[in-house]
């Protein structure tokens, strides 16, 4: 039987993800700044691949990887159809609506339309729809804080960890949309076909993170994940 394949996200979640698997005895030979995309250590029960964070749900949905680690923000934005059986208790962040201080206290429902820059168009749309706010979404791929400052947008929707970047750009948080953390995801077919192996791995990971996974966040009332019919 082929080994289970785990997709790890490049970027801010890579280091804690690697550390997690190192605690389980994997990936010990990997150095910082490694450019290797597939880590296939002989004699070890897992194969790892390194992908762009937003691509991890795609690898897992298609079954090119059986499991993956990804931020819930990225996962829910992707709308990909995968299982998410285990929040991992690291990589906490919040998806927020932010803007210049003069927007504080405004009721956006009474505005005919506001322009919002975001890297999360899908989640932003779902949020505004739920709040009954008419918004024109401007999808960007980075440095969203710039948009309100140059008049491209009135507001922004983005993830914050400490709020430092917002403050530095003279922006304040107007509303919290959803709390996120890193989560383990599993391909729907793999879970059934490789049940025993995946259960063992899940149990090992759960042991390693010491049940800190429940930040209360994943139970948010907002359900943005669009389901698919097979």
């Amino acid at each position: 039987m082929e080994r289970l394949t785990v997709a790890l996200p490049k970027g801010r979640l890579l280091e804690p993800s690697v550390r997690l698997f190192q605690r389980l005895g994997y990936l010990c030979a990997i150095g910082n700044g490694s450019r290797q995309l597939v880590v296939d250590e002989p004699g070890v029960g897992l194969r790892f691949l390194l992908a762009r964070a937003s691509d991890v749900p795609i690898y897992v949905e298609y079954g090119a990887a059986d499991l993956g680690i990804v931020g819930q923000d990225v996962l829910w934005e992707s709308g990909r159809d995968v299982y998410e059986p285990l929040p991992l208790g690291f990589g906490h962040c919040r998806l927020v609506l932010a803007g210049a201080p003069h927007h504080q206290g405004r009721d956006f429902r009474l505005v005919s339309s506001i322009r919002v820059a975001t890297r999360y168009p899908r989640l932003a749309r779902a949020y505004f729809l739920q709040q009954g706010i008419s918004a024109e979404i401007i999808p960007l791929t980075g440095a969203v804080e710039l948009a309100p400052q140059v008049g491209l947008a009135d507001l922004l929707v983005d993830v914050v960890e400490t709020g430092q970047t917002l403050r530095e750009n003279g922006m304040v948080e107007l509303a919290e949309i959803v709390r996120c953390q890193a989560t383990l995801i599993v391909n729907r077919v793999s879970l059934r076909l490789r049940l025993a192996e995946i259960r063992r791995l899940l149990a090992a990971i759960e042991g390693a993170i010491g049940n800190t996974g429940d930040g209360g966040s994943a139970g948010s009332e907002n359900s943005f994940v669009v389901r698919h019919e097979a």
Partner: peptide
Amino acid sequence: REAIDQRNPVRLRHALNA
């Protein structure tokens, strides 16, 4: 139903609480 479908135990716990 959705939490079970996603096999998301945390979301399921919250949904059962609610």
